[in-house]
Design a protein around this nucleic acid. Structure first.
Lengths: 196, 196
DNA sequence: TTGTAAAAATACCAAGGAGTATCTTTATGA
DNA sequence: TCATAAAGATACTCCTTGGTATTTTTACAA
């Protein structure tokens, strides 16, 4: 019962990468089989159908990655505004897996799948809610610690930050992130400064 | 030579709506034929292939619509910050064609097509450049007229605004725009106020 | 009116899509 | 060791896809 779990995991991981660069609907199961060297029998042993695999990718790959990358490290003390900026910088230019031309995996899936399959929307919504809640919490702690102005509306700021990230990820597809990323980061710094 | 132009236009318009709702790759030519009541012969008389139609949609539908909706009205005098806010409000909640669950047509196409077909990327880049240039110009005029602080970096603010729009359009897919839109708008107002 | 090209209709094709049915191999626990 | 179920392999089916080939209709200039 060890080998099987491994094949299942490679399917999820490779499929995730393919979907990230090609999109969900245009990544065929045969594509996945070809790159994983897994046969169709094995695939359909592990997953009832393509969508079940898609959900599994969100829940078993995307969600844990998000948690350990953005949720857990956010819990540390200090200036939340500094931290948000650092996180954004890391997300946009510090993470070698995330390429400008392919955008953000979470954003891509949301954009593509939400109108089609409600389950994808629910799964992604959970993911975003988790990120949102953490950011709000961190901002509130920052207010208590005097890093952030008292009249700042944490939920609004959070939406502003998350929107900016997804938006610039998409804008960055047009110029390979060459100018959009750096300009966004500079202005984000200005914006965050206005909150303290 | 009048009827032909009309069929061509209906193809572009109906296909645009379908693509907005379903996505480009998952909108089949047969879908388009079914909703337009046009036959395959007529379709391929007007367009060499699907992608040529896609480009025509960007250039002949999306671009003119953008121009008359965001470029031309932006030219009027007055406080550019007020105007940007009003434009955003109209885009997000005042435009009946743009539904939260389907996002922004321009954003959708960029997200979906840019990694696949460079021509789509170039066309969309032109579109966005036009919007960006206009926003920058308007902000600069606002600085000269005293509506905007002198030390504001117009290009950065523009990227911030455009990113926020695309991002919240995508976020809004997850909650049908119920909370994300209004929160974004409120914080956008705060942000814009910090620029004057 | 009629010849000619524009415009549109119809029928078809090869490739690729998701998913199934059936068989073979591998592991494991009694 | 060996029966049984897990895991994987192979070969299909049926449907949709973008695109083509060919024919028919429409418009209009002479």
């Amino acid at each position: 019962m060890k080998k099987a779990a491994a094949t299942r995991l490679t399917i999820l991981q490779k499929a995730f990468e393919l979907i990230y660069v090609k999109g969900y609907q245009t990544t065929s199961i045969d594509d996945i089989l070809a790159t994983t060297q897994v046969t169709k029998g094995a695939f359909y042993y592990h997953f009832k159908n393509k969508d079940e695999m898609g959900l599994a990718i969100i829940n078993e790959i995307l969600k844990p990655t998000m948690t350990e990358s953005f949720i857990t490290p956010l819990q540390n003390p200090g200036d939340p505004l500094e931290f948000i900026y650092g996180m954004m910088q890391h997300l946009l230019i510090g993470n070698p897996f995330l390429k400008p031309e392919f955008g953000c995996p979470a954003s891509n899936i949301t954009q593509e799948m939400t109108p089609w399959n409600a389950d994808f929307g629910h799964a992604m919504n959970e993911l975003m809610k988790q990120w949102e809640d953490t950011l709000v919490e961190v901002l509130e702690k920052g207010k208590a610690a005097g890093f952030v102005k008292k009249d700042v509306h944490s939920k609004q700021v959070t939406i502003m930050v998350m929107s900016g990230y997804w938006g610039v990820r998409n804008l960055g597809k047009l110029d390979q992130g060459k100018e959009s990323y750096s300009r966004y980061l500079k202005e984000l710094k200005n914006y965050l400064n206005s909150l303290k």
